[in-house]
């Protein structure tokens, strides 16, 4: 059936709430409003107030309550409207969700799922355009996933819900319109493995989220220049599936990392460093890196576009790496 990213997220969410008796959704405007991005539209009416809970605008309280409820035996799905607001819950995410299992000597697992939108590209200016998933990927104890395809948007939640540890799902706000044909049955997604989205032989592009789409667009035109690019979607930013991209680099001997986060200290830096450490002798050229310009994202369309990685930038960067 043909689904867009939004409908896929809704289908995955509905499926999770129905099939996991201990699961419930809570967050701002998830109920009566139907979700800020209409992901949970109709679920309150269908599943009731116990399963779909509107919360006050209290990110710290409802994320922390999700942690407590998870330790109390439930399987909360917490929606934070956008990554930008997750900063108001950072104490709970970082000091509690990420630490409790280890600090308690293995006694208290936190089987919590936190969903949030991420990313720029909609002229919403600096406070509504962050891409902080790479930043969250810095934190041991969390699993960080980023669905870039319609199938992942539908299937990742179920896998995340089965994870005994906290999983943060970053849904890209600029991808809600992409569509795909999916089977009727929901297929769970393997969160341990990156996915090769386009096979190629001359260069490995490692990316995720919105970067996947810019990279695939670039990979479409590169054959015109005689370049075959392999495009890898990380899907999970922590823990990184380095085997998949190292194996690819061993074949292509060149690598470009594309991300929407800022360049300094970003997830791309980590991937590039790993390739440098583990695949140095496989490389025929230095690893290339593309990231968002190191500025707060501006409102003006031309400035925002200039700040973000575009398909043309990927093409140019590939040329530079391939030489």
């Amino acid at each position: 059936m043909k689904l867009d990213y939004r409908a896929a997220l809704r289908d995955g969410l509905r499926h999770a709430l129905i099939n996991e008796p201990r699961a419930f959704l809570m967050g701002e405007d998830v109920g009566a409003y139907g979700g800020c991005f209409a992901v949970s539209l109709g679920l309150l009416e269908e599943l009731g107030e116990n399963k779909v809970r509107d919360t006050p605008l209290s990110e710290s309280a409802f994320v922390g309550a999700g942690i407590g409820a998870a330790m109390g035996g439930l399987r909360p799905i917490v929606e934070i409207m956008t990554v930008n607001f997750s900063l108001l819950a950072l104490d709970q995410i970082m000091n509690n969700a990420a630490t409790l299992l280890h600090m308690s000597g293995g006694q208290f697992a936190v089987p919590l799922v936190i969903r949030m939108t991420t990313g720029a590209g909609r002229q919403l200016a600096a406070q509504h355009s962050h891409s902080l998933e790479g930043w969250y990927a810095h934190i041991p104890g969390l699993r960080i996933v980023a669905p870039a395809t319609v199938a992942d948007a539908r299937g990742m939640l179920w896998t995340a819900l089965a994870d005994p540890d906290p999983v943060l799902i970053f849904e890209h706000a600029a991808l809600f319109g992409i569509t795909d044909d999916l089977p009727e049955e929901l297929e769970p997604v393997d969160l341990d493995r990156a996915a090769v989205r386009r096979p190629g032989t001359d260069i490995t592009i490692v990316t995720y989220g919105s970067g996947l789409h810019r990279s695939l667009e670039a990979a479409e035109v590169l054959p015109g220049e005689g370049i075959s690019a392999e495009v890898i979607d990380l899907r999970t930013l922590r823990p990184l599936d380095s085997d998949t991209y190292l194996e690819s680099v061993a074949r292509t001997h060149r690598a470009l990392v594309v991300e929407e986060g800022w360049r300094t200290g970003g997830i791309g830096a980590e991937v590039a460093a790993q390739i440098g450490e583990e695949a140095f002798w496989d490389l025929d050229a230095p690893v290339g890196r593309l990231a968002t310009a190191e500025v707060p994202i501006p409102y003006a369309q031309h400035l925002e576009a200039a700040a973000l990685v575009q398909a043309d930038d990927v093409v140019a960067a590939v040329r530079a790496v391939v030489g």
Binding site: A65, I67, G68, A69, M71, G72, L74, P76, N96, L100
Partner: peptide, 28 residues
């Protein structure tokens, strides 16, 4: 921490245990 007696810490961020307690209560 002690799972056997349901003792959930020991939170060293002032106020950090409050939402967690609310969540534990929600589970009950």
């Amino acid at each position: 921490f002690d799972a056997a007696t349901r003792f959930y810490g020991g939170n060293a961020i002032v106020g950090g245990g409050l939402p967690v307690a609310a969540g534990l209560a929600l589970a009950e």
